[in-house]
Simulated assay, not measured.
Amino acid sequence: MLDTSPLTAVVERFADRLRAAPQSRLARGAAAVALDLARELAARAQRLEGGPERELPDAGVFVVGDQLQVAGTDLAQALREHAAPDGAKAPSVLLDEAVRLVEQAEVRAMR
């Protein structure tokens, strides 16, 4: 089984930083960056699971940390449980890409 702890660790760190961030930082763009990331992670999980893709709603700047946590956890679970579809990237490659996405978004959001 694929070890997804690197993904869950970076998602948890970023989500915690968002939850602790002042409203001014969230409103200046950190929340928008995090919501875009959460939507991307959720879409990747939904593709792996083979279900229909549904977009995460914009529920406001104060819940985006929770949305990111849920989307990241869902993707980690999907990576552990579902093999990559034929012709798709290996789960380990998908994991590495997701970790990079989270790290890059955190840098953009928290600068």
Rank of each mutant, 00 (worst) to 15 (best):
V99Q: 02
D96F: 05
A45E: 01
H82P: 01
A20H: 14
D36V: 08
A76M: 05
L7C: 06
R17Q: 13
L94M: 15
L7G: 02
A45S: 13
R19A: 05
G65K: 03
E103F: 08
V33C: 14
F62R: 15
E81Y: 13
L101M: 15
E81L: 15
A105M: 02
M110L: 14
L56S: 07
A88E: 15
A31G: 06
D36R: 07
A45D: 02
K89M: 10
V63F: 04
G87Q: 03
D74T: 09
V70S: 10
P22Q: 09
G87V: 06
V70W: 10
T73K: 08
V61I: 14
Q67T: 09
E40D: 13
H82M: 10
S5L: 11
D96A: 12
M110I: 11
R25A: 12
G72S: 04
S5G: 05
A109K: 00
A32W: 04
E55P: 07
G50N: 11
L101D: 09
D74R: 12
R13V: 14
A84K: 01
D66K: 08
A109L: 11
L2E: 03
M110R: 06
D3Y: 12
T8M: 07
R54W: 13
Q77D: 11
A76T: 06
L2Y: 01
G29Q: 10
D3K: 06
P91W: 00
Q104H: 13
D3G: 05
Q23W: 08
R39I: 01
R28L: 10
V93E: 14
L37D: 02
M1Y: 10
A45V: 02
L18R: 01
L101K: 08
V10A: 03
A109Y: 01
L37I: 04
D3A: 10
R108V: 12
R44C: 02
R54C: 14
A27C: 10
A78W: 00
A88S: 15
L68E: 02
E97D: 15
Q77V: 12
R19Y: 09
E49P: 01
D58M: 05
H82K: 12
D86W: 04
V61G: 05
D58Q: 10
V10M: 01
A43P: 00
R17A: 11
A78H: 01
R47K: 15
P57S: 09
V102K: 00
Q77A: 14
G60N: 04
L94H: 03
D74Y: 06
M110D: 08
R13E: 10
P85G: 09
L56K: 03
Q46D: 05
D36P: 03
L68P: 02
M110P: 05
M110S: 08
G65L: 05
A20V: 14
L2F: 06
D16T: 15
L26M: 10
A78T: 02
V61Y: 09
V70A: 08
T8P: 00
R100T: 15
A32I: 08
D96V: 07
A20N: 13
Q23F: 11
R80D: 02
S5W: 09
Q69F: 11
R25I: 05
S24R: 15
R25F: 03
R17Y: 09
A32Y: 05
A83W: 06
V93F: 12
Q23K: 10
A98S: 12
G72L: 02
S92F: 13
A20P: 15
L48K: 00
